[in-house]
Design a protein around this nucleic acid. Structure first.
Lengths: 219, 219
DNA sequence: TATTTAATTTAGCTTTGCCTAAAAATAGTT
DNA sequence: AACTATTTTTAGGCAAAGCTAAATTAAATA
């Protein structure tokens, strides 16, 4: 239930990430690729983790997490996402800069630290990428929250899921700009002076437009 | 000037700490003791660090930092103290709880992270123990600041260096309580409801007294 | 079904950083 | 100065985690 080395934690996390979505056990190769390592290394680590009781591993067939392994993975992910939240919301980092850093910070295992950090950040439910932050007890909410597009930072990609102002006039305006429900877009730049955004392939969207778009952030 | 492993950083930091105060090179045994390791290990590491150009090491004579080694040590110490400040001032940890944690955090080497953290904390000059925080350029202020005793947290030890109210009445009051310039004391407990403190061997000191004592925090 | 191809595991090597035990050098004592 | 005691270094091992290359197993094709 605890005491995994930094490296073991990485594998458990990768196993968790790769097994959500795909059905069945995770292949050695997929795991190795995900972690930028060689299959032989992943294979060796699976043996270790199986011995520790954190994964179920049938030779040549792939691996999957046991309940205790999943618990560790969720803990690591919780730490990762809380630190990402901190880095973006408090230190003002951009989205795409925080992953590597969080990858280092996540391996500091100290319940008190993480609980205090959680508190300090206001117990957020989602990280800046829109991914849910597992709770201390290991439960996870699996829904990405809607956000107002005006909150997007440069580099963010998002899918349009709804509008705040659904008046005809506004919807016609959106239509004229080529903005439709379901499209995905990427914010290239935000302009301090008027809040507008430069959107890849769409030119400039004004703050008025952004404030009325409900979006789901993409990973 | 950079790229030392976590372990090497520990040795460089220890070397820095042990060489300030004591004159001449640091002995292998002192180093090992400081890091809870065996002399043989310290000896081997000195060889490595000397090869890297971070320490000057004459066999059987002890080691001392080169300028580039000192630069790294100062960087590690800067990171350590900034994180300690964060843990105490923002997350509300008590003094004595933060050392080990900072010891882990200090090894995350990322200039942008540390500069942003520094900014976020208001570029503090001293950590919660009263030790100076080296600047990004490697300069260090070597004076402990005076603090008002009412700011002391439980567990803090401090030496009385002055008073705010130097009226006769007040000084006689202090005298009656056994409080004199230069004495060292330790705060055992603070009382929320009236701000008073229980002081080891001195009973209770009221907020009115504490607010008028200028102290230097002890390590 | 036999054979080829691809994936997985095993075997054996490397590095880092620690350890213990033995050897070497310094320091202290008579 | 010689001997002893202490400190420091060297030598040789061990564990973790990665790697390459070879062997094995499973999957795909003829």
């Amino acid at each position: 239930m605890q005491g995994a080395s930094s490296s073991r934690e990485d594998y458990l996390k990768a196993l968790y990430v790769l097994s959500t979505g795909a059905e069945g056990p995770v292949t050695t190769t997929a795991l190795a690729e995900h972690l930028s390592m060689r299959p032989a290394s992943a294979s060796g680590m699976m043996k270790q983790l199986a011995e520790a009781g954190w994964v179920e591993h049938e030779a040549y067939r792939g691996a999957s997490l046991t309940p205790s392994g999943e618990r560790i993975a969720l803990d690591v992910i919780r730490r990762h996402r809380l630190w990402e939240f901190f880095l973006v919301e408090r230190l003002g980092f951009a989205w795409d800069q925080v992953h590597e850093l969080a990858e280092r910070l996540e391996h500091i295992e100290d319940a008190e630290l993480i609980n205090r950090l959680d508190d300090y950040l206001g117990c957020p439910d989602f990280d800046p990428h829109g991914d849910p932050i597992p709770r201390a007890d290991g439960t996870v909410v699996d829904a990405r929250p809607l956000q107002v597009a005006s909150e997007l930072r440069p580099g963010a990609r998002a899918v349009i899921k709804g509008v705040v102002d659904s008046s005809d006039v506004f919807l016609r305006h959106l239509d004229a700009l080529g903005i439709r429900l379901g499209i995905e877009f990427k914010v290239v730049e935000r302009h301090e002076f008027d809040g507008s955004a430069r959107v890849e392939g769409h030119g400039i969207w004004t703050l008025g437009v952004l404030e009325n778009l409900l979006v789901v952030i993409q990973p």
